[in-house]
Every structure is written in C-alpha cells, then in structure tokens.
C-alpha cells in the first residue's frame, strides 16, 4: 500500500480513494462527484497538453485539473 495524490497516479493504474484534503467547497464538491473513501478510481488518460486528466469512478468518466486532483489522497494497491 502506497499513499499518493491522485494527480501523480500514473495513466492506466487503479487506486482507492483515502480522503480529500481540500477546503470546504472543494471537499464537498469532490464528495458530490463520488470521491469518497474506499472508492476505486482509474486514471484513463491525459489531455494532449498534459492537463487535465480523465478519471473513471463509480461508473462515470470525469476530468479533473491537477489542482483538484492534488487534493485527493489515494492508495495504490499492491
């Protein structure tokens, strides 16, 4: 088990959300979007210019910029 931030999760790998470190609004919005502890999340790809990145979680594909993804702690399984 390695802890890291979602923004540094390599493309193609799966991790599990540990928690959200952002401020009030940011944290509650990320929770609304499904970034809740224990949720598996996959980094699908990067945009052509590197940012944002496309993630898949809870049946939805959504893009986060680096600033937001850096608020989400995840653990890499294995």
């Amino acid at each position: 088990m390695t802890d890291l931030y979602l923004s540094s999760l390599p493309v193609g790998s799966i991790a599990t959300v540990v928690g959200v470190t952002g401020k009030g609004i940011q944290a509650s919005r990320l929770a609304d979007l499904g970034f809740l502890p224990g949720t598996p999340v996959t980094c699908l790809r990067r945009a052509p210019l590197g940012d944002p990145r496309l993630y898949e979680l809870r049946g939805v594909q959504l893009c986060l910029r680096e600033a937001e993804a850096a608020c989400i702690r995840v653990s890499l399984d294995g």
């Binding site: 609004i25 919005r29 893009c63 600033a67």
Partner: peptide, 10 residues
Amino acid sequence: GEAMPFVLEL
C-alpha cells in the same frame, strides 16, 4: 471569487 473546482464530465 473562490475558485470553483473545475468539473467536466465526459
């Protein structure tokens, strides 16, 4: 204003 988290669902 406070930066809104950028959200873009595909």
